[in-house]
Amino acid sequence: MISTRFPRTARVRARSDFDRIFQQGRRVALPVLALHWQSGDAAPRLGLAVSRKVDPHAVGRNRIKRALRETFRHLRHDLAPGDYVVVARPAAARCTGAELAAALRGLLQRAGALPAPALPPTALPPTAAPGTMPAASPSAPTPDSRPG
């Protein structure tokens, strides 16, 4: 069974780590979130940056962090090893937890850290049965045969 805990060792906490990831890592962004990612050999670690510009109220900032942490916790075993820092933008304050989770998943996939979900096999759309279109009548005028 795969553990879905979020231990302290799975968090980016030191300022020097944040600085290193911001300076040397790759960046992908959406209007809601930005992801800074630096690959490494250790298990995936998450750092969060949610400033007062995003939401002036602590309860709003904490809600955003809780939703992002929970999504990362569930995806952690599928992620490429390395350090991830998610920076919330002001639009994140207006998003629900599900929207924040979808945005984080999308960023991780765009960064190449999370494999794209396998698409379920779908049936091809049914084709029209032969003879369902009415045949053109020979007496109907065509655009080329009109006088004019």
Rank of each mutant, 00 (worst) to 15 (best):
R73D: 06
R13V: 10
D41Q: 13
G60Q: 03
R20C: 11
R45Y: 08
A101I: 06
R13Y: 05
A118T: 15
V85K: 07
E70T: 09
A113M: 09
P90K: 12
R94G: 07
I2T: 04
A43M: 08
F6M: 08
P31S: 07
F6S: 01
A113P: 02
A101P: 00
D55I: 01
C95I: 02
A116D: 11
P31V: 06
T96F: 02
I2Y: 12
P121K: 11
R66Y: 06
A14S: 05
R66K: 14
L104N: 03
P125F: 09
F72S: 00
A103C: 13
R20F: 12
L79P: 01
A123D: 13
G47T: 11
A123Q: 08
A101L: 00
W37G: 09
L35M: 05
P125T: 00
S137N: 06
P7C: 05
L108W: 01
G106R: 12
V28S: 03
A91L: 14
P81F: 06
A14D: 05
L75A: 01
S39I: 08
F6Q: 00
A10G: 10
A123R: 15
D41G: 15
R61N: 04
G97A: 15
G40Q: 01
A29S: 15
A103I: 12
L79N: 00
H77Y: 07
P121I: 01
A92E: 09
S16E: 13
P147G: 05
R8G: 09
T127G: 15
P31I: 10
R110N: 04
A42Y: 04
S137E: 03
A34R: 08
P115N: 10
W37S: 07
L75H: 00
H74L: 13
S3I: 04
D55K: 11
A135I: 10
R61K: 13
P56S: 14
A101G: 08
M1T: 13
D78H: 11
T127P: 07
L79H: 02
